[in-house]
C-alpha cells in the first residue's frame, strides 16, 4: 500500500519534472518569470485529451500538445518583445486567454480518458509501469536540453538571460532568443500536461492552477540540494527537486494536512526559499538594534 503510494509519488515527480525543466529554462536561464505555464500546462492536457477522446493516436496528440504549448510561449514572447508589455503581465495575459482557449478546445470543462488508448495504457499493455514512460521522456528532454545549452544557440540564450547588452554587442537579436526560450519552455510544460492528463485519466480546465509555483519550488529545492557546477548538474537538480517536492507533498498529506491546503503550503515554501537572504539581513538589523549583552535597544 505504502509502496504503491511511493511509486505513485515518484511517477508524479518524474512527469511534473518535465514541466519543471520548462520552468527552469525561463526562470533560471532566461531570467524571465513566466506565468504562461499555468495556462500552457492545461493546454497540453486539453489538446492531448481532445485528440485521444476523438480516437486519435495518443502519440500524435502528445506531440500536438507540445507544439500548442510552444505557440502559447511564443504568444507571451510576442507580447513582451514586440508589444513591449512587461514579462510578468505578458504571461498573465496569455494564461488568462488560454483558460478560454482550453475550454474551446475541450468543448467542456473535463474530458475523461478512461478506457481510451493513451501512452500510459500502451505501456501498461506491455507490462510496463507509467514511470518507465516518464523516465524515457524526461531523460530525452534532459539530454537534449543539456546538449542544446552547449551549442552556439544555447550560449546566446544563456547570455540573453545574463547580460542583454553584451550579447546584443555580439550581434544576437535578444528578442528572438526570448521567443526561442519561451517557446521551448512552454513546449515542455504542455508536454508534461499532456502526459499528466493521460496518467490521471482525465484533462480538466482547472488542472493548471499553481503549476508555476510548483515548478519554481522544484527548481529552488533542487538547486538547494544538488550543489555541483556545470549545466548537466543543473537539469539533474531540477529533476531531483521535482521528485523531492512531490515526496514532501505526499508526506504532508500522510501527516494529515488537508489536500486543499497544499497550494498555501507550497507558496509559503517558495516564499521562504526566495526570501532567505532578506531574512538574514532583517535578523542582522534586529540584532544590531539591541545591545548584545543587555538586550536593551540602542538608539
Amino acid at each position: 500500500m505504502l509502496w504503491s503510494a511511493l511509486v505513485g509519488t515518484l511517477e508524479q515527480g518524474l512527469v511534473y519534472g518535465i514541466m519543471a525543466l520548462g520552468v527552469y529554462i525561463t526562470y533560471r536561464i532566461l531570467n524571465f518569470a513566466d506565468l504562461t505555464v499555468d495556462g500552457s500546462f492545461p493546454l497540453g492536457g486539453a489538446v492531448a485529451a481532445t485528440v485521444i477522446a476523438n480516437g486519435g493516436s495518443p502519440l500524435w496528440g502528445t506531440c500536438l500538445a507540445a507544439f500548442a504549448g510552444m505557440l502559447a510561449g511564443l504568444a507571451t514572447g510576442f507580447l513582451n518583445t514586440k508589444l513591449k508589455i512587461s514579462g510578468l503581465l505578458s504571461g498573465i495575459l496569455t494564461m488568462t486567454a488560454l483558460y478560454s482557449v482550453n475550454l474551446r478546445i475541450m468543448g467542456r470543462a473535463n474530458i475523461p480518458l478512461l478506457r481510451k488508448r493513451t501512452l500510459v495504457s500502451w505501456f501498461g499493455d506491455r507490462g510496463l509501469a507509467p514511470w518507465v514512460l516518464f523516465v524515457m521522456v524526461l531523460m530525452l528532454a534532459k539530454i537534449c536540453l543539456d546538449a542544446f545549452l552547449k551549442t552556439e544557440l544555447g550560449f546566446a540564450l544563456r547570455a540573453t538571460g545574463d547580460n542583454e547588452q553584451m550579447i546584443r554587442s555580439c550581434g544576437v537579436d535578444t528578442d528572438t532568443m526570448k521567443l526561442l526560450g519561451l517557446g521551448l519552455s512552454n513546449g515542455l510544460v504542455a508536454l508534461s500536461g499532456a502526459l499528466v492528463a493521460q496518467y490521471q485519466g482525465f484533462a480538466d480546465v482547472g488542472m493548471g492552477l499553481g503549476t508555476v509555483v510548483a515548478g519554481l519550488a522544484s527548481v529552488i529545492v533542487g538547486q538547494a540540494l544538488v550543489r555541483f557546477d556545470g549545466l548537466g548538474w543543473a537539469t539533474t537538480a531540477v529533476i531531483v527537486g521535482s521528485v523531492v517536492y512531490r515526496t514532501a507533498i505526499f508526506a504532508a498529506l500522510r501527516l494529515g494536512l488537508a489536500p486543499t491546503d497544499l497550494k498555501l503550503i507550497t507558496a509559503v515554501l517558495v516564499i521562504l526559499a526566495l526570501s532567505g537572504p532578506s531574512w538574514r539581513s532583517i535578523c542582522e538589523k534586529l540584532g544590531r538594534g539591541r545591545n548584545r549583552v543587555t538586550g536593551i535597544p540602542t538608539p
Binding site: F148, K150, T151, E152, L153, F155, A156, A159, G171
Partner: peptide
Amino acid sequence: EENLAMALKRGQAPGLSRG
C-alpha cells in the same frame, strides 16, 4: 571560454554547432 566564443562569432547567426 564561453564569453570569448560568443565574441568570436560576432555577427554570425548562432546555430546548433558546439559553442
